[in-house]
Amino acid sequence: MTTDIVLQQLLNGLTLGSTYALIALGYTMVYGIIQLINFAHGDVYMIGAFVGLTMVVVFGINIWAALFVAMIACVLVAMTIERVAYRPLRRSTRLAPLISSIGVSIFLQTLMTSMKGPQPVGFPQVVSNTIYTIGPVKIALVQIIILLVAAALMIALQLIVKRSKIGKAMRATSEDYDTASLMGVNVNRVISFTFAIGAALAAAGGVLIGMYFNSVFPLMGVMAGLKAFCAAVVGGIGSIPGAVIGGLFIGVAEVFGVAMGLGSYKDAIAFALLILVLLIKPTGILGQPIQRKV
């Protein structure tokens, strides 16, 4: 591969990876706080894509407004899921909410399939397909948008988590759930808020992917969700920068894998990386080692 191609693939990988990162953030934050692998998260991303699509096609509103509506819609969906399917199980065994999340996932997938059919639905060309050439690299307008929106959202997230009061409460809760609640943190509100933020980011990811690939379908959240989850683990679950690094890493690895002729093994790349990283550093790149007291 020449340098030109490498740079080009790197750009494509970062574009794809930034959408993985947007989804991965939701997994990592939720896991950080309640140690739940929220398997319905990928489906929230899918719903975000469909809401965005409906806004653009049916209501004819502009893509930025559609993005915003999709984010709000997913916030409501995720908060409802948390309230109904997870909160009653918070003090039970670890596997109970996990199974519940799988139930929610099946429900959301089949709900959307019954509404839209299983086939991919075209996402209209909402931005012009202008391609800019910067040196050896060609970059489409939609890629610029994806990278900028993803970066803006991540910066916003970082500000919320580091600067706001609720962000501080989130960090406290993820550090020590019981102590936080004893110190007067409204844990229910914090958890609800965490799901909300995660869902908003995933919804944005869904709309951006719709714009990028021009198609959305009811099962799109399955593979994307799993890979994003791999990203969260690879980066170190519970760590926000870890999720971003993991997402970009997996996106880039996947694009390079395809460029090297491993196209038919594309879906295995993320998982192979996952296992590799877990075996070398069981808690991920930025994860904190688990200390067991004997």
Partner: peptide
């Protein structure tokens, strides 16, 4: 891997293994 991985991490590794098996069977 259960030597090094416990709990959810082992679960995730097995999930990864299973997906790889599926892709290999596919190819």
């Amino acid at each position: 891997p259960s030597m090094r991985l416990t709990g959810d991490y082992l679960g995730i590794a097995t999930l990864g293994f299973a997906e790889i098996v599926r892709v290999i069977l596919m190819n």
